[in-house]
Design a protein around this nucleic acid. Structure first.
Lengths: 165, 165
DNA sequence: AGCATTTCAGACTCTTTTATCTTAAAATAA
DNA sequence: TTATTTTAAGATAAAAGAGTCTGAAATGCT
């Protein structure tokens, strides 16, 4: 698994909040129920995101968490970096410490290119983009509800979105 | 980490054996010392590879393990599939079960493309190719010995190898 | 002020992965 | 046969990841 479970939960929570697109606080309880994630576990994860200024939190009644910035200004890579760390995208594919341009492993160059593409995928994607897709196509974000969609329609969007870059 | 430690160790051991390119058995003891991997742990990993017909083993004096086929006929993907399983390259990036073309997650299309490229990287690479690189450029395969190389020279090889496809 | 609500902080448990240790089994050579 | 070398197999231990629980701190409401 490329991303840890904590990271996946954090991303999914952030996507959910982006789909609401409201300036009010949402309780972690609500998010955990909607996404079918353990409340206490999610609490810990979202704490990390508030520490990293991706979310803001407020205690007490009417409290909860909210995105710290408009969803169009939050990129997936910020969340991944905050929770799983930046090393994912600098690590040797064979786990060799010190693998780099000067002392490369046999697949260093190839993997460097691939992991850079993945990183770009994460940094090219904003929460707003994801939220749009989720709303327009009723895409799945939880592991419980299924959301059968118009696959052909989605494909066309995906390609368009790619070409724009 | 994309690949488990077991998988990394298995790949490194296979690469090492490919650099020797001899038809005789190599003891796991020797491999573990050369690559600085726990002997008993490596033994278990290589057992998996013999079960999957990637290596053959022989007990007793003069025994050890050997590649089951010429190194040019063994592709990296075989080792990865044998140890970490094939699910790596079919998994949803957000870990959502059932994510697919009919019920996709918001990044399904993008990730499907990337993971397919990674899989291709593994299936395009044979042990012989890796062994060649290691021998010619004295590349590192262990975490102990460092092997400073001619970076510019390597880069040219890497690009050539890419263009051939 | 007192109470209910909600995040925060830390300790704790459970599970999986990683690693080690011990003994058995197989093959070889003397 | 017997000693030796080596993989096979299983039990156990350590570390990391995933998840749970409890109490404290902050906030709003009555």
């Amino acid at each position: 698994m490329l991303l840890s479970k904590s990271c996946l939960y954090g991303v999914r929570a952030a996507m959910y909040m982006a789909t609401l697109e409201q300036s009010e606080y949402v309780t972690i309880q609500q998010i955990s129920e909607k996404l079918n994630i353990s409340f206490h576990f999610l609490t810990k994860i979202l704490q990390t995101l508030t520490e990293n200024n991706i979310m803001v939190s407020y205690r007490g009644p009417k409290g909860g968490v909210a995105l710290a910035k408009p969803s169009k200004d939050i990129r997936l890579i910020e969340i991944v970096d905050a929770i799983d760390g930046t090393h994912i995208f600098s690590e040797c594919i064979f786990g060799l410490p010190g693998c780099g341009n000067m002392t490369p492993c046999p697949l260093h160059g190839e993997w460097e290119r691939e992991r850079e593409k993945i990183r770009r995928m994460f940094s090219d994607t904003t929460l707003a983009m994801l939220a749009d897709k989720i709303n327009v196509f009723n895409l799945r974000i939880s592991d419980t509800d299924s959301a059968p969609i118009n696959a052909k329609l989605l494909k066309s969007l995906t390609i368009t979105h790619r070409k724009r870059k």
